[in-house]
Design a binder for these strands. Structure first.
Ligand SMILES: [Zn+2]
Ligand SMILES: [Zn+2]
Length: 543
DNA sequence: CGTTGCGGGCTAT
DNA sequence: ATAGCCCGCAACG
């Protein structure tokens, strides 16, 4: 699900804007928002208030009191990429707490018949870095913005994870039943947001057609300002691509009776053996023998129904207990955790390094399945990346990114998102300052002043187009001075005209693409964005 | 115990 | 300046 192409509010704002249009419509909470999106929730939305997400997001310090930033921790997977009997893959929820997360790593795979160990598959969905979520509160709404497209499967639902944790050590099936029931019950709430998804997905396709036409323009726009470090990391994604052909080799395995994180049995799996020693990160990747995600069910685990049937059942939760994560237990296993493994894992826990460049320009989908590919993209999955809970969330990452087109399609909303930032245009051509001045002059009405207020405090101004005011400042800088609001450019054309000195075309979609790419891959350009379709532009630069 | 948020501080670009 | 990230602290459940 990700975000809908158009949020109720036509996202003509950016989380960093000092002034944002007043929002009248709110979006239903999207637990699995993916791709670049901006959503506005009601201030009383509990989930929004908690800044929760289906993705395992951890707080990260962005030195900005007004905006809460979180980055994705990826997903906890089996080092052997085993497939559960039902065809699902292991994808547990990484603990948010660093300490707890470390404990998780190296634990035996929950699949009883698998000898693999749990390891973190870091998120590299945003230019090689973890996808980030931004939250900002205003008086009447909670603004949410995401950057990047998760290149990994969805972790288990938060509720499931919690349930597991709290379920006592009850070791039997009973616990499992409870979990399943919970999951099933929880799943229903997401249906709401989904309808729009398909719709947007379709529109996304349409938009894609415009891409070629607009490419030139986009390049031009991007040339306005090229961030020094662009994301061009397509490579990572490619590396995770899996061979579709390989399918569920391990599917039929039975489960051992060992706890998910504490398997003690010595059951050996043929394939896996050494795999667990390698970190999941692409740079280190060892080729999993078979496609890890290929089989991800189309419906993500997030789906209630699915969960009950597929996801949870696969795990042996009976043994899961609070002590699952006890470090000591790791050593109790017949096969001690390999120190190296753990070590490596930690270092790779979160992708830090950018990746290598990919063939950005190629629009081809890489299906070459290298041994190291983690993901096998299934086109069907790729096309729909919706946040609705059911979608094949797991696919979002992987496959889509390989091609610009694909990405665009995939990204939720149909908004083209170029994670890869394959377009390395030069922004230099147009001085950024120029843009600012233009926009700024035209939007005299906006108040640029920056007042500071913790994001938790509602930022009235934000909603009303007023500057931040209140409280804390951004840690070290204020946005106000440089804030530029492009709101006046209601049309994409207007925007173009500014640069081109002429009005070019009416194709709003183009802008979207541009926006997407810019936002996603070019850090500096994140402020430049358009409403996803014909809405006004909101370009902001601040510093 | 784990989650969530805060914020200092370091690093790379 | 921007962004990513580590780390400790604290409130909370
Ligand atoms: Zn396994
Ligand atoms: Zn992610």
């Amino acid at each position: 699900m990700s975000c809908r192409a158009y949020s109720a509010n036509a996202a003509d704002w950016d989380i960093n804007d000092s002034a944002i249009p007043r929002i009248n419509e709110y979006d239903p909470f999207s637990e699995w928002a993916d791709g670049h999106c901006r959503l506005v929730y009601r201030a009383d939305n509990e989930e929004a208030k908690r800044h929760s997400s289906g993705w395992a997001m951890r707080n990260t310090n962005n030195h900005n009191v007004h905006i809460l930033k979180k980055s994705c921790l990826g997903v906890l997977v089996c080092s052997l990429r085993c497939t559960l009997p039902n065809g699902d893959r292991v994808h547990l929820r990484p603990a948010i707490c660093d300490k707890a997360r470390k404990k998780q790593q190296g634990k035996p795979c929950p699949n009883r018949q698998c000898t693999g160990r749990l390891e973190i598959l870091p998120c590299r969905g945003h230019c090689g870095y973890p996808v980030t979520h931004f939250w900002r509160h205003t008086e009447h709404a909670i603004f949410f913005q995401a950057k990047g497209v998760h290149d990994h499967p969805r972790p288990e639902a938060k509720s499931t994870s919690e349930a597991r944790r709290t379920l006592g050590s009850g070791r039997r099936v009973r616990g499992l039943a409870v979990l399943l029931a919970k999951e099933a019950a929880l799943g229903n709430k997401f249906d709401i947001g989904r309808k729009t998804v398909d719709k947007f997905a379709a529109s996304g396709v349409e938009q894609i057609t415009h891409i070629e036409k607009t490419t030139v323009k986009l390049v031009k726009l991007m040339s306005l300002r090229e961030p020094k470090r662009q994301c061009r990391e397509i490579t990572n994604q490619v590396s995770r691509t899996l061979n579709p052909s390989s399918i569920l080799p391990e599917t039929d395995k039975g489960y051992c009776s060992c706890p998910p994180f504490e398997c003690v049995c010595s059951y050996q799996q043929p394939l896996a053996t050494s795999l667990h020693q390698f970190p999941s990160s692409p740079s280190y990747q060892q080729p999993p023998l078979d496609s890890f995600w290929t089989q991800e069910p189309l419906h993500g685990q997030s789906y209630p129904a699915d969960m009950a049937n597929s996801v949870n059942p696969q795990y042996d939760f009976s043994s899961i207990s609070t002590d699952l994560f006890q470090p000591e237990e790791i050593f109790q296993m017949d096969q001690p955790v390999k120190p190296d493994y753990v070590h490596i894992n930690q270092s790779n826990e979160i992708a830090r390094s950018p990746s290598t460049l990919l063939d950005l320009g190629s629009g081809t989908i890489h299906r070459e399945f290298k041994t190291e590919d983690y993901w096998s993209p299934s086109i069907g999955n790729m096309l729909i990346n919706d946040d609705s809970n059911n979608s094949s969330n797991s696919n979002s990452r992987f496959n889509l990114n390989q091609t610009p087109e694909n990405q665009m399609v995939l990204n939720n909303n149909s908004l083209p998102v170029d994670q890869n930032c394959y377009m390395s245009s030069k922004l230099d051509e147009l001085p950024f300052s120029l843009q600012k001045s233009h926009y700024y002059q035209q939007n005299p009405t906006f108040d640029v002043t920056d007042n500071k207020t913790p994001y938790l405090l509602e930022d009235k101004n934000f909603q009303n187009f007023e500057p931040y005011q209140n409280g804390k400042n951004y840690n070290k800088h204020s946005y106000q001075d440089e804030y530029i609001d492009l709101g006046q450019f209601n049309e994409y054309n207007s925007f173009l005209s500014v640069y081109d000195n002429k009005v070019t075309n009416n194709d709003n979609t183009i802008f979207n693409d541009l926006d997407f790419r810019i936002n996603s891959c070019v850090p500096s350009l994140n402020n430049v964005h358009s409403t996803y379709s014909h809405e006004a532009f909101d370009v902001i630069s601040h510093q």
